[in-house]
C-alpha cells in the first residue's frame, strides 16, 4: 500500500517535471522552428498561411538571401572576426586572469576591479569616445581596429571567469611545476591552460556568440561594405518601412547554423565549465 503510494507520488512528480521540461523545450525550440518555417514561405503567404508547415516550400529564399545579402563576403569577414577576437580574448584574458590570480604586484586588486567595472559600462555609452580614439589611431574602417575593439568588449567577463577558475587551482600543482623547472609563463602554458579547458570553452562559446551576432559596433567603426560582418547582410532585408520577412528568415537561418554548430560541438565542455571550478587538477 505504502509502496503504491510512493509509486503514484513518483509518477506524478515525474509527469509534472516532464511536462515542465517539455514546455521549456518547446518554448525554446518553437521560435527556431518558426524561423525555419517562415524562411520557406513567400511574401504573399507569410501573413495569411497559419499552418505549421508551408503548403509550398520556397527554397528560393535561401538563394536570394545569399546573393542579395552578399553573404559570401560577410561570412568570410565574420569568420575572421570571430576567430581573431575569440583567440585574442582567450590569450589576453587567460594571461591576465593568471596574473591576477597567481602573481603579487602593487595595485593588483585596483586593476582587477577596474576591469570588472568596465563590464558595467553599456557599449553604446562608449561609442563616441571609442570612435574618436580609433580615429586618432587611424584604425577606423580597418579590420584590425574592429578586432581590437571587440577583444576589449569581451575581456572583462572572460578575465572574471578565468580568474575564478585559477583561484581554485591548488598551489601544490604550481609548486610541483616550479620544482620541475617551469617558469611562470611555462606554468601558464603547460599547466594552467590545459586545466582551464572547461572554463576556456565557456569563454570561447560566449565570445563567439557575441562576435558572430555583433553589428552595432561594426556599423560604427566600419564604412567599407567589404569589411562588414554577417549581420550587415541581414539589414538589407529590414527596410525602414518594409521587411522582406521570408528572405530575412532565410538569412537568419543561415546565420544561425555555424554558431549552433559551435555550441553543439562544445556543449560538453560548457556544461563542465559552468558546473566545475570546485575540483581542479
Amino acid at each position: 500500500m505504502i509502496a503504491n503510494k510512493y509509486l503514484i507520488q513518483g509518477f506524478f512528480k515525474n509527469t509534472l517535471l516532464h511536462i515542465f521540461l517539455l514546455t521549456v523545450t518547446i518554448s525554446c525550440l518553437f521560435p527556431i522552428f518558426w524561423m525555419v518555417r517562415s524562411s520557406l514561405m513567400s511574401n504573399a503567404t507569410i501573413f495569411v498561411d497559419q499552418s505549421l508547415l508551408p503548403h509550398e516550400w520556397n527554397w528560393h529564399n535561401y538563394a536570394v538571401a545569399w546573393t542579395k545579402g552578399n553573404f559570401g563576403v560577410y561570412f568570410f569577414n565574420s569568420l575572421i572576426y570571430t576567430v581573431s577576437v575569440v583567440m585574442g580574448i582567450v590569450i589576453i584574458s587567460s594571461l591576465a586572469a593568471f596574473a591576477f590570480s597567481r602573481l603579487k604586484f602593487p595595485g593588483k586588486d585596483a586593476l582587477f576591479y577596474m576591469f570588472i567595472a568596465a563590464m558595467m559600462i553599456p557599449l553604446p555609452g562608449s561609442f563616441v569616445p571609442l570612435f574618436v580614439l580609433m580615429n586618432k589611431l587611424h584604425l577606423v574602417n580597418t579590420r584590425f581596429g574592429y578586432i581590437l575593439c571587440m577583444i576589449n568588449v569581451g575581456l572583462s567577463l572572460s578575465i572574471l571567469l578565468l580568474k575564478t577558475f585559477f583561484d581554485k587551482m591548488p598551489s601544490d600543482l604550481e609548486d610541483a611545476a616550479r620544482i620541475d623547472g617551469c617558469s611562470r609563463i611555462q606554468i601558464w602554458w603547460h599547466m594552467a591552460l590545459p586545466l582551464a579547458a572547461p572554463a576556456l570553452a565557456v569563454v570561447v562559446i560566449y565570445n563567439s556568440l557575441n562576435v558572430w551576432n555583433e553589428y552595432i559596433l561594426a556599423t560604427l567603426l566600419l564604412s567599407d561594405n567589404n569589411l562588414m560582418p554577417l549581420q550587415r547582410g541581414l539589414m538589407v532585408f529590414n527596410g525602414a518601412y518594409q521587411v522582406d520577412y521570408p528572405v530575412l528568415m532565410a538569412g537568419l537561418t543561415m546565420t544561425a547554423i555555424p554558431i549552433v554548430a559551435v555550441y553543439l560541438f562544445m556543449q560538453k565542455h560548457i556544461i563542465k565549465g559552468l558546473s566545475s571550478g570546485a575540483i581542479v587538477g
Binding site: 576567430v83 581573431s84 590569450i91 580597418t142 579590420r143 578586432i147
Partner: peptide, 21 residues
Amino acid sequence: RRLVSWMFCAVLAGMALGCAQ
C-alpha cells in the same frame, strides 16, 4: 595547446589582413 597556437596564428593573420585603411 596546439589549438591555441593555431588560433594565435589566426589572430595575427586576421590583424594582418585588416591593417590598411
